[in-house]
């Protein structure tokens, strides 16, 4: 799992790639916490996610909640990788109101 900070049009985009599974859940949470602490609006690129389990989906949901508590929001850059999209669909996260927009174009 890698979370890389990129610049797109002068704005930060956090690209998440590789396996986003339970082994990397703690590290991902830490990386997201750091990203949330410096961005009210966080833009994530999940097109490189190769494997996703429930921890990835829960972390996305948790990130939205924290951002919204601080008056911010979660945005997406690029497409959703097939692995992430399939996980979100079968587990009902793509229809969870907080994440519906994040997955909307792809579902």
């Amino acid at each position: 799992m890698e979370l890389t900070r990129l610049e797109q049009g002068g704005k930060p985009v956090y690209a998440l790639a590789g396996k986003c599974t339970v082994e990397h859940a703690a590290a991902l949470r830490q990386a997201l916490l750091e990203a949330v602490s410096v961005n009210t609006v966080l833009t994530l690129d999940v097109s490189g996610v190769e494997e996703a389990d429930i921890t990835f989906l829960q972390l996305l949901l948790a990130t939205v909640l924290t951002l919204e508590q601080n008056g911010g929001s979660l945005r997406r850059h690029g497409s959703v990788s097939p692995a992430a999209l399939a996980a979100a669909r079968v587990a009902g996260f793509s229809h969870t109101p907080k994440l519906a927009n994040f997955f909307s174009d792809e579902d």
């Binding site: 859940a25 991902l28 949470r29 949330v36 429930i54 829960q58 948790a62 990130t63 909640l65 924290t66």
Partner: peptide
């Protein structure tokens, strides 16, 4: 639905 910065949130557990 625990928030990311919730101290009780354990990312390795299922909620």
């Amino acid at each position: 639905k625990p928030a990311l910065d919730n101290d009780d949130f354990d990312p390795e557990r299922v909620y």
